Simulated scan of single mutants.
Amino acid sequence: MCATPYAVLGPDDCDFYDNRMARMEAARPAGAADAWTVAVRAGLDPAKVADLQLEAFEAEGHEWWLVTSDAEVIESVLYNYPEERVANAPDAGD
């Protein structure tokens, strides 16, 4: 099922959104605020922050539970690749 593009996924499928979110929440460090709390504290949309954190989590990003923006997803994912962080810095093309 996961190899079929645009397949309709249900609760029994590994890539079902709720299952992915459950895996992320199970991996969230003890004491770390959930995505909703992080978003509300920052005045952001909780659903957007949860999706950003899921993206960073699934990419094995560093401290994914703190992510609140697209830029932070990239920073989180590239954390272990310093050469890529430098190459992708906003002023790298200057």
Results as ranks from 00 to 15, higher is better:
residue 1 M to Y: 05
residue 1 M to A: 04
residue 5 P to V: 15
residue 5 P to W: 07
residue 6 Y to I: 15
residue 7 A to Y: 08
residue 8 V to I: 14
residue 8 V to S: 11
residue 9 L to H: 09
residue 13 D to F: 01
residue 14 C to Q: 08
residue 15 D to I: 08
residue 15 D to L: 14
residue 15 D to Y: 15
residue 17 Y to Q: 04
residue 17 Y to E: 03
residue 17 Y to V: 08
residue 18 D to T: 06
residue 19 N to E: 04
residue 20 R to D: 02
residue 20 R to E: 06
residue 21 M to S: 04
residue 24 M to P: 00
residue 25 E to C: 03
residue 25 E to L: 07
residue 25 E to Q: 12
residue 26 A to I: 00
residue 28 R to M: 00
residue 29 P to R: 00
residue 29 P to V: 02
residue 30 A to K: 13
residue 30 A to W: 05
residue 30 A to I: 07
residue 33 A to G: 03
residue 34 D to Q: 12
residue 34 D to M: 00
residue 34 D to G: 05
residue 35 A to S: 12
residue 35 A to C: 02
residue 36 W to M: 11
residue 42 A to P: 09
residue 42 A to Q: 09
residue 43 G to A: 08
residue 43 G to I: 01
residue 44 L to M: 13
residue 45 D to R: 05
residue 45 D to G: 00
residue 45 D to S: 03
residue 46 P to G: 04
residue 46 P to E: 06
residue 47 A to G: 05
residue 48 K to S: 14
residue 51 D to M: 02
residue 51 D to T: 12
residue 53 Q to V: 12
residue 53 Q to K: 13
residue 56 A to I: 13
residue 57 F to K: 04
residue 57 F to S: 04
residue 58 E to L: 10
residue 59 A to Y: 13
residue 61 G to M: 08
residue 62 H to A: 12
residue 62 H to I: 14
residue 63 E to T: 10
residue 63 E to M: 11
residue 64 W to A: 04
residue 64 W to R: 04
residue 65 W to C: 03
residue 66 L to S: 11
residue 66 L to Y: 10
residue 67 V to P: 08
residue 68 T to R: 15
residue 70 D to S: 14
residue 70 D to R: 15
residue 76 S to W: 03
residue 79 Y to H: 15
residue 81 Y to L: 13
residue 82 P to Y: 12
residue 82 P to D: 09
residue 83 E to C: 09
residue 83 E to Q: 12
residue 84 E to F: 12
residue 85 R to I: 14
residue 85 R to A: 07
residue 87 A to I: 01
residue 87 A to L: 00
residue 87 A to G: 00
residue 88 N to G: 06
residue 88 N to C: 08
residue 89 A to Y: 13
residue 91 D to P: 02
residue 91 D to Q: 09
residue 92 A to I: 01
residue 94 D to I: 13
residue 94 D to H: 06
